[in-house]
Simulated assay, not measured.
Amino acid sequence: MSVIDAHVAAGDLPDLPTLGVDDLLRTLDDVGVERAVVGPVGRWVAVDNEDGNRTLAGWVGAHPHRLAWWATVNPWYGRDRAGAELRRAFADGACGLKLVPSVQGFGLLSPLLEPVLDVVEEHGRPVYVVTGVPVASEPLQLAELALRRPGLRFVMGRSGRTDFSLDLLPALTTGPNLVAETAYNGAALITRLVAELGPGRVLFSTDAPFNDARLELERVGRAGLTDADRAAVLGGSATAVLGATW
């Protein structure tokens, strides 16, 4: 069964663990993950977007059969600067846009975000949003954004776990352009997500190295899914969401 990890983290965080490309590949091999999508963290998300995007593009260029990458831009850089960098990153092979509102300093419903989303929609790419941070990035905020932008597909990173997921299912069921992510969520919730949304709208991810990749795989295994549904969650859904960019 093919396993695709929809988000692992890489970047410059002096006080937190991060993975270089060699360590990342070893981690994937150790737990049996065939391919992974790398997302920037730390200063690469907050301020040094181009540096992070170019570095991850280099990793993927060296290992195209194992890795893909999420680009990022900070919406505060404005239509011209952020838009130009995002277009360059998409031309360089980025599979979609990653946003971390709590780090990048904006609210999900801010007009600041609109020019960046316009570029994503022009290119037909998905948007990965780290959710579960009260005020900045909660599930129902992303649900409202998805309603406003029906031409985009949004991945609800972490599925709101760090704010206890109280509004998760009401948010995810508002529209078909919202996709759940498994990271940090227990087997029972994964079971319910698949039942409520269908396996094609649930993505497996580990968020390694901040989270234990082996544990995340075990949670999916304990969810009691059929073989077909488990195959979709662990790989098929990611292939569908990322499309030709993978």
Rank of each mutant, 00 (worst) to 15 (best):
178 L>W: 08
178 L>R: 11
179 V>P: 15
179 V>M: 11
180 A>Y: 08
180 A>T: 14
181 E>L: 10
181 E>H: 15
181 E>D: 14
182 T>P: 09
182 T>A: 02
182 T>V: 10
182 T>I: 03
183 A>G: 05
184 Y>C: 04
184 Y>G: 01
184 Y>V: 13
185 N>T: 15
185 N>P: 00
185 N>F: 00
186 G>Q: 13
186 G>W: 07
187 A>L: 07
187 A>G: 01
187 A>W: 05
187 A>D: 04
187 A>M: 00
189 L>D: 04
190 I>D: 02
190 I>P: 15
191 T>S: 09
191 T>M: 05
193 L>T: 03
194 V>R: 00
195 A>Q: 12
196 E>F: 12
197 L>S: 12
198 G>E: 15
198 G>V: 08
199 P>C: 11
199 P>D: 08
199 P>E: 10
199 P>N: 11
200 G>E: 15
200 G>I: 03
200 G>S: 05
200 G>L: 03
201 R>D: 03
201 R>N: 02
202 V>Y: 07
202 V>C: 14
202 V>T: 13
202 V>D: 00
203 L>A: 14
204 F>E: 02
205 S>P: 00
205 S>C: 15
205 S>I: 04
205 S>E: 02
207 D>T: 07
207 D>G: 01
208 A>T: 08
208 A>C: 14
208 A>V: 01
209 P>W: 13
209 P>N: 07
209 P>D: 10
209 P>K: 14
209 P>M: 03
210 F>V: 13
210 F>C: 07
210 F>Q: 02
211 N>D: 14
211 N>Y: 15
212 D>V: 04
212 D>E: 01
212 D>L: 06
212 D>F: 11
212 D>Q: 11
213 A>P: 15
213 A>Y: 13
214 R>Q: 10
214 R>C: 14
215 L>W: 01
215 L>T: 02
216 E>I: 03
216 E>M: 14
218 E>A: 12
219 R>T: 05
219 R>Y: 06
221 G>W: 09
221 G>C: 03
223 A>S: 09
223 A>G: 01
223 A>P: 01
224 G>N: 14
224 G>H: 02
224 G>M: 03
224 G>L: 09
224 G>F: 04
225 L>S: 11
226 T>H: 03
227 D>L: 12
228 A>C: 02
228 A>Q: 00
228 A>F: 00
229 D>P: 05
229 D>H: 00
229 D>I: 08
230 R>T: 12
230 R>M: 02
231 A>Y: 05
232 A>C: 10
232 A>R: 09
233 V>M: 01
233 V>I: 07
